[in-house]
Design a protein around this nucleic acid. Structure first.
Lengths: 197, 197
DNA sequence: CTCCATTCCTAGACTCTCTAGGTTTCAGCC
DNA sequence: GGCTGAAACCTAGAGAGTCTAGGAATGGAG
């Protein structure tokens, strides 16, 4: 019987394709095995199980996403960088809904800390924000705001959550404008008692 | 044999409890049947299947959420209303992670349009924003920004996405401040510091 | 009391995850 | 060329879950 030539990497890559075609929740070891013309039990030699496959897929997609973002942001600063970051983020979510969904799953905190992709994501995000002259803890707050908005927008959009006629792209552009404005006039602790380093 | 007294409403309510206890993805007809001391096939008299149960749960949770928000926002305006809205939203997501996860699932667009909860949500959201003097299409853009940010923040938080030490509540407060700032100085069409894109 | 719609049941087909243990293939070495 | 060991892939089967089909019990209306 001819071998399918399975490896962990190939299994994860096929899972990524399957996720985009059928949806992340339909990524199944049985379906994946069918795609390779192999029995599902055979996949357990390369992947510890469904949970393992899913977290591998999440890290794989996270790596792809940050690669795209890094490429888009390279050489830009300020609003230019923000727009490029956001555009690359949303484009990936739209082109690869299954992979993007994979990036949303809950992953063991220790795995996140150990993954180079996540560290790279943090670097690039913080780097982009440095142009706005923010300092900790405002920097962390701003990162959280950006991540939340980008993620929330893409999640709602891909879930069909935007019913109104208004073009989704136009609203996205406006959201970026609004975020840029918020970042440039970031509300600091200007209040009488306030002083955070 | 004593009957369990099942009705569609009771099944959905039990599913909501189960979702919060075990997580939305573990809401299963078998588990639900076990909870009622009944065979899983019996539930099919009250619910068309798992998919039907999930969308019913989503609408149920959406109704609860908007009730909480409406109560919190009542009698407030401007930033006060924004803070109350956001606080109620996040509190619900934190108290009922399973139900909140249910509100995120993709639902048939026609069902959304027909549901009174969703119409009520739109009313309250647009009403809150009217204080900022926005007009269409800025109004729709702003609603999408708010929904995205709230949803994204809660999704990331409940998925354990915020690793840094910085308190999550503090970042949330800052995000509200930033959104309020963006809403009060909403970037209208004629941008002075021209940056086309 | 009888009717009968509703409620709940058993039985079983199908899908999927995962384990245990058995073959087959292939690359490198004598 | 033949041996050998590690992968790669297999069969078999337990267990959980969804869902359909059809049968039996319950309880309210007439």
């Amino acid at each position: 019987m001819a071998r399918a030539g399975l490896t962990t990497d190939r299994v994860v890559a096929a899972a990524a394709e399957l996720a985009d075609e059928a949806g992340f929740e339909h990524v199944t070891l049985t379906a994946l095995a069918r795609r390779f013309g192999v029995k599902d039990a055979s996949l357990y030699s390369h992947v510890r199980g469904l949970a393992d496959l899913r977290t591998r897929l999440a890290l794989y997609a996270g790596g792809e996403l940050i690669d795209r973002i890094a490429w888009a942001v390279a050489g830009r600063a300020g609003k230019d960088a923000l727009t490029a970051f956001a555009g690359a983020y949303r484009a990936y979510a739209m082109e690869h809904p299954g992979r993007y969904a994979a990036t949303q799953i809950r992953i063991d905190q220790s795995l996140i800390a150990a993954s180079p992709q996540m560290r790279r994501t943090a670097e690039i995000t913080y780097g982009m924000l440095r142009a706005y002259g923010l300092r900790e803890p405002d920097l962390t707050d701003a990162v959280r705001l950006l991540r939340s908005t980008f993620h929330g927008y893409c999640a709602l959009e891909s879930a069909g959550g935007f019913g109104a006629d208004r073009a989704v792209q136009a609203s996205w552009d406006k959201a970026i404008d609004a975020l840029h404005l918020a970042l440039t006039h970031w509300p600091r602790e200007a209040r009488p008692d306030g002083d955070d380093r």
